[in-house]
Design a protein around this nucleic acid. Sequence first.
DNA 1: AATTCGGGGCC
DNA 2: GGCCCAGAATT
Length: 348
Amino acid sequence: MTFQAELINWYQNNKRDLPWRHTNDAYTIWLSEIILQQTRVEQGLPYFNKFLENFPTVSDFASATETKVLKLWQGLGYYSRGRNMHATAQAVVNHYNGIFPVNHDELIKLKGIGEYTAAAISSFSSGEARAVVDGNVFRVLARYFGISTPINSPVGKKEFYKLANELLDQDDPATYNQSIMEFGAIQCKPKSPNCSICPLNQTCYAFMHQQVNLLPVKIRKAAQKHRYMNYFICENEQGVLVRERQAGDIWQHLFDFPSIEALEEVTLNSASFAQKVSDTFGKEAQFTLLASKKHILTHQIIHLHFFSLKNYIFNFSKQKELKWVSLIELDELPQPKVIHDFITDYLL
DNA sequence: AATTCGGGGCC
DNA sequence: GGCCCAGAATT
């Protein structure tokens, strides 16, 4: 049996029953593919159901507010996916008559849809012969064919795409694409795959040369950086003061609180920190520590302190991103996971 | 070509 | 603590 036939045969016997595999509707498939970018099926599944329930059609998605979209996205991470989805839904309504494109060359023009996602949506919805190359495919091809070119280098990406499209089953690209990804996720998994039961083990380069745990090759990422975020909670009869985060940093268009950020850990009861608070919130400002947390992102380790702030002065004309909200309204705003955890424990 | 976008699960 | 996950956009 050929490599492709073995994969499809394995898929028919081992595939998971996932909701987006029961449709060829491009909108529904688009929802699943964006949600699953850099996200495990188990983590994305409840979000897929939630989005389909709230937005049954692309028109429903387009007519929602961005805040509503981000609130539904809350906790899933990589929030630009949510913002780009909103823009794309509106583009489909305005420029495609509300009919989601199914062709690769149209799909890739849309925000948030790159090479992988355009291939996935086009092959699954219309049977277009485009090979998907995701993390699973990189791994399966690198191991089976013994390719040591780094998968996250431009040269490697080109090489793997070329091979993937040569291997693509022209008669049923959708099933073949599903098969190789599912095979990578379940059988040819990253850590300690059970190669003894693999139907391809007798022709797999990595297995025969004891290189399964050496492939694929990946170039190391930059080291994580530490950030120190000191948040100040201001409460009055109206509620609490929040800040909408702006472009150019993490959590764009999500909400947190007024803060003083530092590059190093501050000594909380030091004169220098007290001076900084006075400079920012006025000489009479008083603060007490409410909680401390640590939050890990891909490239950042964030150290957070939350303070209650009294007797403060704000210059709202210079802080247009600030606004007062009631606790009810606060609950409707999208928040970073670590902020939402704090609010749940200390404000609600 | 390298960095930067989250959060969770696994070892 | 490091690695990976149905990657894309930016610089």
